[in-house]
Structure formats: structure tokens, C-alpha cells
């Protein structure tokens, strides 16, 4: 059977595609920045924080890591309005991305913190630093450096997972491709294009994470 490729629809839908791309990028950047910040705080809380905080952070992390992302998203967007918390689909998508990456990255960063030699904590303490100061100035950066490749992968996983937000009509890249194929019936081409764009995004994101690593960790890790 001969299939005739038809990409002639692209000019008509370039606006939809670009908007979808912009939203996927926005979700990834905001989710990445805020999510990793939340993850760092939770990693600190679970590894080094006060005893009352550990079970709270633990409960959050396990709740998120043991439930589907789509259900988390639906709960925020469809569930919360029942108790009077309303938000638009983009905000709901952003919040879902942040709490999801926050939980997963917390466990990755915690591994980095707990691999720190005890002598580093003791050196900070012996210089009269408080535990928080020691964490901030001594422990944090080498810990992040240790797990940076794993953290980079997690950010990419979350970026790809953002496709799910199309289910609450957030107009991301996946939403755009669904929209296009329903209008043009060119499913093969529409999803092929989307696949290529996601692939390019993932490759770029990985390179960006590597570049950020080079900038914030001036020292290559040894052993």
C-alpha cells in the first residue's frame, strides 16, 4: 500500500504548534526551577532536618512517588474545585509538575547528601558554622554535583510526562497534535512531527542540564 505524506497543513497550524511548544517549554522551565528548589528543601528536611519535619516530608514524597501523575493532575484540576479551590488548567498543570518533580528529585538529592563524607560536616562544625550554614555552603553543591546526571534525567522524564496535561485541556504540544490530527485527519504526520519536536526538546534539555552543570560545578568530580 502506498501512503502519501501530506505536510501541507503545517503553515495553517504553525500558530497552534508554536503555542503548544511554548507551553511545554514553560511547564518544563517553571516545573524544573521550582520543582528542584522544592526537592532540595525536601531532601534537606528528610536527611538533615528537625525530627518533626522528617515524617511530613516523607509522607509527601511517598504519596507522590506511589501514585500516577495523571491522577495527581486530575485531583488538582477536577478534585480541588469541590472544596472551593479553583484554578485554570495551566496553573493546575504547573502545580502538578512542581509537586511531582519535587518529590522525585528530593529522593535523588537526598542520596547525594547522604553520600557526603562525615568529615565535611565536622569540618563545617569545627569552623563554628551552624548546621544550616554547613549545609548551604559546604554540603549542598558537592551533593548536587554527585547526582547531577540522575537529576538531569529526572527533569527530562518530567518534561516528557508533561504530555499528560493535554488531558485537562492545557494547550501544550501534545494538545496541539491531538487538535491538528482531529482537524486534518493526518494522524501519522501530526504525531510524527510531535515526536520529532519532543525528541529535539529532550536532546536540547539534556545539553542544557550538562551546560548548567559545567557552570555551577567548576570542579570536575573525582572518584
Amino acid at each position: 500500500m502506498a501512503y502519501h505524506f501530506d505536510f501541507s497543513w503545517i503553515p495553517d497550524y504553525s500558530g497552534v504548534i508554536l503555542k503548544g511548544l511554548a507551553i511545554t517549554v514553560e511547564l518544563t522551565v517553571v516545573g524544573g526551577l521550582v520543582g528542584l528548589t522544592l526537592g532540595t528543601f525536601c531532601a534537606w528536611g528528610r536527611a538533615l532536618g528537625p525530627n518533626w519535619l522528617k515524617p511530613i516530608v516523607g509522607a509527601y514524597v511517598e504519596l507522590i512517588r506511589n501514585t500516577p501523575f495523571m491522577i495527581q493532575l486530575f485531583f488538582i484540576f477536577f478534585g480541588l474545585p469541590s472544596i472551593g479551590v479553583h484554578m485554570n488548567e495551566l496553573l493546575a498543570a504547573n502545580i502538578a509538575m512542581v509537586i511531582n518533580l519535587g518529590a522525585y528529585s528530593a529522593e535523588i538529592i537526598r542520596a547525594g547528601i547522604q553520600a557526603t563524607p562525615r568529615g565535611q560536616f565536622e569540618a563545617g562544625a569545627s569552623l563554628a558554622m551552624s548546621p544550616i550554614q554547613t549545609f548551604r555552603h559546604v554540603i549542598l553543591f558537592p551533593s548536587l554535583q554527585r547526582i547531577w546526571p540522575a537529576l538531569s534525567s529526572q527533569v527530562i522524564i518530567v518534561m516528557l510526562g508533561s504530555a499528560v496535561v493535554s488531558q485537562i485541556a492545557a494547550e501544550d504540544l501534545t494538545f496541539a497534535s491531538n487538535f491538528i490530527q482531529s482537524r486534518t485527519f493526518r494522524a501519522f504526520e501530526a504525531y510524527l512531527l510531535t515526536t520529532v519536536v519532543y525528541l529535539a526538546l529532550a536532546v536540547l534539555l539534556r545539553a542544557a542540564m550538562r551546560g548548567i552543570g559545567v557552570i555551577i560545578f567548576p570542579r570536575r568530580r573525582r572518584a
Binding site: G119, Q120, E122, A123, S126, A128, H137, P142, F217, R219
Partner: peptide, 20 residues
């Protein structure tokens, strides 16, 4: 503890320099 550690420095067997 911090007041005391400001008066007494410590040097370790494993140096414990900050690698970053």
C-alpha cells in the same frame, strides 16, 4: 557550641577541605 568553636580550631587526619 559555636561560641566555643570560635575559640578552638580543629585540624583533621583527612584534611576535610571543601572540594568545590
Amino acid at each position: 557550641l559555636r561560641a566555643l568553636r570560635l575559640k578552638v580550631g580543629m585540624i583533621f587526619q583527612q584534611f576535610n577541605l571543601f572540594p568545590h
